[in-house]
Amino acid sequence: MARHPSGGSEDGTGVNLQYSGEEKIAVGPGVVWAFVTDPGKVGRCMPEVKEVAVQDQTHVDAVVQVAVGPVRGKFKLKVELLPDASGRRIDMKISGGGFGSAVDMTAGADVVDAGDGTTLLKWSGQAIARGPVAAVGGRVLDAQAKKLIEQAFANVRRELSAPMVDQA
């Protein structure tokens, strides 16, 4: 579930987008931490992901399919994971290209022990979109970006809650 705040700066420019939300995950924080610091697993949680290529321990490239009405195409994302030494917070830098545009996102998630064997994943993010996608699609961008980010974190929850063959 995501809370949707102002959706832009005071004068309503709309290309600087901020989101936040929370996912309740039915496994312990240690399992969640292992998941969100794994580039391959994070890459595969991107919505409509078509290709995932892990570059190293903290870098993964992904290609996602975007389809909003007539606008359809692929967006290339480069994800960098920045886990905090405390083991309780992970930051992410995501830069994407496609449709002659550039999207830069920073996101962060706090892995919080709910005390009952479950975990609260509190996340927030900020996106800056540039180019035709922002200029022409600005009116739709906010809602779509919000959807994609919500979906990504929901996918994390789903992956972790579903019974998995190996949970190491």
Binding site: S9, T13, V15, N16, I128, A129, R130, P132, A134, A135, V136
Partner: peptide, 16 residues
């Protein structure tokens, strides 16, 4: 012709 604080040009076609 407006630029936001990130340097994006907000008025790039005749819609804006």
């Amino acid at each position: 012709i407006q630029y936001d604080s990130d340097g994006n040009n907000l008025n790039t076609n005749f819609t804006d």
